[in-house]
């Protein structure tokens, strides 16, 4: 459980060269402890650059990142320490599995934290439980597992560090619908049981709408929208204008309103749409 504050964060790649590019510009926001946040934005909008600042993988060109009130870039020690507090799961994390066994792979993070053998074992079991990896798999090579299992092992490796802030960059990319649901359920379980702050980068509007409490929409390196799913999806035209889609339920609700059916409120899930239809006497 950690809270996060970002102050006037700017990052410029290849500064002073012909390839200079400002990836994010003057971003300020605060994410309180325990919040479930969705980061939206199309490719190149600055989402990935942003999240890489949150555990000091990238150093700000200007501005600050504070975790629990402490500037994470103040010295080498804090830059290092923050990596235990803020767990970052990259896209396609299964490509980063490298140990000989599933157990050793999940244990890699806690081991680097210098924990004792018993503590490591307990954390590996706990993390595996969160992501639904059975203990029978512990002695198998991670390379023998299916795509979905590999991804869950990779996520468990980060969860085993018990990060107060868990950030996942498109954790469901490339999985089939059943695999997606399972991973998202795992993440929800971790959040519920650990109370961690969770930040998830997603291209899937339906998932973002269903799961998160807050959506931050990036566009051209700045924050274009920031609010509850209800607030963000009540402005579907703006989302469409910056090249993002809206949840399917939202686009159907828009079409229904155009046909003169006076649906009330912000609609972004199937349940909300059905309830709104009932209210106006359809069904």
């Amino acid at each position: 459980m950690s809270d996060l504050r970002v102050e006037a964060l700017t990052h410029v790649y290849s500064a002073g060269t012909p390839f200079e590019k400002t990836a994010i510009q003057d971003i300020s926001l605060q994410i309180p402890s325990g919040q479930f946040v969705g980061l939206l934005g199309h490719t190149g909008s600055g989402k990935s650059t942003f999240i890489q600042h949150l555990n000091a993988l990238l150093k700000p060109t200007s501005g600050k990142v504070l975790v629990d009130g402490e500037d994470i870039n103040q010295d080498k020690k804090t830059r290092r320490a923050v990596k235990n507090k803020v767990g970052l799961v990259f896209q396609y994390p299964e490509y980063q599995l490298f140990e000989e066994t599933v157990f050793a792979d999940i244990a890699f993070g806690p081991k680097n934290m210098g924990l004792g053998k018993e503590e490591i074992e307990q954390r590996v079991r706990e993390a595996a439980h969160f992501v639904g990896v059975e203990e029978e798999l512990f002695q198998r090579s991670p390379l023998e597992l299916s795509g979905g299992q590999k991804r869950r092992v990779a996520i468990a490796g980060v969860i085993a560090m018990r990060p107060g802030i868990l950030i996942l960059d498109e954790p469901t990319a490339g999985l089939d619908p059943a695999g997606c649901r399972q991973i998202l359920d795992n993440i929800c379980t971790y959040r519920r049981e650990s109370g961690a702050t969770v930040i998830i980068v997603s291209h899937n509007m339906d998932d973002a709408a269903r799961l998160t409490e807050r959506l931050i929409v990036f566009n051209h390196g700045t924050v274009a929208m920031d609010g509850s799913p209800e607030q963000v999806f009540s402005r579907p035209e703006e989302l469409i204008k910056i090249g993002l889609s809206v949840p399917q339920a939202t686009s159907l609700a828009m079409a229904l309103r155009e046909k003169g059916i006076p649906l009330q409120g912000s609609i972004y899930t199937h349940a909300q749409l059905m309830a709104a239809l009932k209210e106006v006497g359809v069904c």
Binding site: S251, L252, M254, A255, L256, E258, K259, G260, I261, L277, V280, G281, V282
Partner: peptide
């Protein structure tokens, strides 16, 4: 598609 689907629902109402 949302438009035709909306038309069906509006017609039923």
């Amino acid at each position: 598609d949302p438009e035709s689907c909306a038309a069906i629902i509006a017609g039923a109402k």
